[in-house]
Computed example of a mutant assay.
Amino acid sequence: MAYGIQIVVDSRDPHAQAEWWAETLGWAVEPSNEDFIRRMISEGYATEDETMVYRGVLMWASAQAIAPEDELGRKDRRRILFQVVPEGKSVKNRVHWDVRLDGDDKDVVRAKLEARGATFLWEAAEGPHSWYTMADPEGNEFCIS
Rank of each mutant, 00 (worst) to 15 (best):
A2Q: 15
Y3Q: 14
Y3K: 14
I5T: 12
Q6I: 13
I7Q: 06
V9D: 01
V9S: 00
D10S: 04
D10W: 00
D10L: 04
S11Q: 01
S11T: 00
S11F: 02
D13Q: 03
P14L: 03
A16C: 00
A16F: 00
A16H: 05
Q17T: 03
A18G: 08
W20Q: 02
W21Q: 01
A22C: 07
T24I: 10
T24V: 14
L25H: 08
A28C: 06
P31G: 05
E34N: 08
E34D: 11
F36R: 15
R38S: 10
R38Y: 05
R38I: 09
R39W: 14
M40S: 11
E43W: 08
G44Y: 07
G44I: 02
Y45L: 13
A46V: 07
A46N: 02
A46M: 14
T47P: 07
E48W: 12
E48Y: 07
T51V: 10
M52A: 08
M52G: 03
V53P: 07
R55S: 11
R55H: 15
G56P: 04
G56N: 04
V57T: 13
M59R: 14
M59F: 05
W60F: 12
A61Q: 11
S62P: 00
A63R: 04
A63D: 11
A65S: 15
I66A: 01
I66S: 05
I66W: 01
I66Y: 01
A67W: 00
E69T: 02
D70C: 10
D70S: 13
G73L: 08
D76K: 12
D76F: 08
D76S: 15
R78D: 11
R79E: 15
I80E: 04
F82R: 02
Q83F: 00
V85L: 04
V85C: 05
P86N: 10
P86D: 14
K89R: 13
V91Y: 12
V91P: 03
N93G: 09
N93F: 02
V95T: 13
V95Q: 12
W97Q: 09
V99N: 05
R100S: 13
L101N: 03
D102I: 06
G103Y: 06
D104C: 10
D104R: 15
D105G: 05
K106P: 09
V108E: 14
V109N: 03
R110G: 01
K112A: 14
K112L: 07
K112D: 14
L113R: 02
E114M: 14
A115E: 13
A115Q: 11
A115R: 11
R116T: 09
A118N: 01
A118Y: 03
A118I: 04
T119K: 15
F120V: 09
L121K: 11
L121R: 12
W122S: 12
W122H: 13
E123I: 02
H129I: 13
S130T: 11
S130R: 14
S130C: 11
W131N: 07
W131G: 03
W131K: 06
Y132S: 09
T133G: 00
M134Y: 09
M134W: 04
A135Y: 02
P137I: 04
E138M: 05
E138P: 01
E138N: 04
E138W: 00
E138I: 00
G139R: 07
N140E: 02
N140V: 03
E141L: 08
E141W: 06
F142K: 06
C143F: 02
C143A: 03
I144D: 07
S145F: 14
